[in-house]
Design a protein around this nucleic acid. Structure first.
Lengths: 253, 253
DNA sequence: TTTCAATACGTCAAAATAACACAATAATAT
DNA sequence: ATATTATTGTGTTATTTTGACGTATTGAAA
């Protein structure tokens, strides 16, 4: 009994403001003190953390919903967003456990038995983010990616998948313009790549490789104040960076 | 006004059998006569074509729904499936046009104003597929990817996106075990890669590159009957192929 | 002034790649 | 039979890229 796209079955859910049984979850990644960090929310009256996210309104696209949610949690417009996976299992996590843990906030009868979640990752400049909790949470905080607690829902799994997708992206598209400040040093960029790939890189080879992409401009300025030799400051050439994003660097053969 | 995952808003749509306002679309790709082909359905009493797809049942995961739909349209179990993008625009296509074109099949009042679609591509062995139309269509047929008609919904766009995703995959994962028969020749594999990448490859360099992946086994057998020199037959080493799929071949640096 | 480790720049052998030459083959034409 | 022909299989070469290092420079701190 094949069913077709857009075909309505009663009762009509479009009477509601939100797309039913569909949510999105955002893995917001920032880089600070040589560490990749993710933005998490702590639910009121609990020590339970989870990713920012929520349902999609009937009047907005899924991408727009992600932007809206991120704007609310970070204060930022113009975030780099990437949809990477749909989490569509019938049973994604222990729902009754969730109901119990949050029953002081949400009537257990109000939860869907099932929701499909669209996974996004966002790359943001750590220092520009103004973490803001929402109605159900009273803390919005950065966590080191290497030192996460057990999260609510299947959010540990989602973060793992986001990192995997980001690592994949790194191999054919540049990464960095969204995670670093305007000006940065080569060692800072290297440590970002090391944090994402989770392995050390040879500074000399990294330097050569990243310059060969032709997306960086070296300034005459240097970063003062650190111990030892002052490194040059660089910035991304926006046009060339965008072009590299567009083209990608794919060549099986 | 942040809203949380799984939180129900009345009326409860879970009373229905299907996830509301959510569908999936499958770009089923096969390879025949040096051409990449896609499986399309023609709607009854029309010359209108579209991709196989449909809604997700409450009792199945999104992936399971895709497998079910593909089983129905191709007769195949164990299809290689890849979720590649969510199409979540509020207005994805001209709905009233669709309503008009299909009103002899579906009451225009029954269409959702909006549905989010999860895009999959499937790689199948052309000769093993038994194309079968569904309740609303009376033809299920292969079309050359290079010579597609204007499709219903946003399905031309979805196919384009599927091809882009497949080309991307080609650069870090092997492709072929799902699209070719058990035994195949090197030129056949090359023409598959050429069809996907849409550009000619040097046979000598292709030969060297693909063998370096260590996923192929050359048989003593040769393909007889063609004009000119008989090419060797190869088959994929399943274990090594799976391992290559798992690992991927990614190395920015 | 010396120390020290991070930074900047460079070297070299090995591996991978792109471009191309050429021999072997097997049905077809002669 | 023999020659023809386009495809297939193998090899060569120059160039580029990569991986693994060496070393000089820098500038705060000792």
């Amino acid at each position: 009994m094949p069913e077709k796209e857009n075909l309505t079955y009663l009762p009509n859910p479009e009477a509601t403001e939100l797309l039913p049984q569909l949510t999105l979850d955002c893995t917001v990644l920032g880089f600070h003190q040589d560490q990749l960090r993710v933005l998490l929310l702590r639910w009121k009256g609990t020590q339970e953390w989870s990713l920012p996210g929520g349902p999609v309104r009937q009047t907005e696209s899924v991408d727009e919903a992600a932007y809206r949610i991120l704007k609310e949690r970070t204060g930022l417009d113009q975030i780099y967003l990437q949809q990477f996976e749909v989490f569509g299992e019938v049973i994604r996590y222990n729902l009754s456990e969730i109901k119990n843990k949050l029953e002081h906030l949400i009537d257990p009868a109000l939860w869907y038995n099932r929701a499909v979640s669209i996974g996004y990752y966002a790359l943001v400049e750590y220092s520009k983010v103004n973490p803001a909790p929402d109605l159900y949470t009273d803390e919005c905080q950065w966590w080191e990616i290497k030192d996460l607690p057990a999260l609510l829902f299947d959010h540990n799994k989602i973060i793992e998948a986001a990192l995997k997708a980001l690592r994949r992206q790194l191999n054919w598209q540049p990464v960095g313009i969204n995670l670093l400040p305007e000006k940065f040093t080569m060692p800072e960029l290297q440590r970002l790549y090391e944090a994402i790939l989770n392995r050390p890189l040879d500074p000399r080879n990294f330097h050569r490789k990243i310059l060969s992409l032709n997306i960086l401009e070296r300034l005459t300025e240097r970063r003062k104040g650190g111990a030892f030799k002052s490194p040059y400051l660089y910035r991304f050439n926006k046009e060339k960076y965008e072009a590299a994003l567009e083209e990608g660097n794919l060549s099986f053969i």
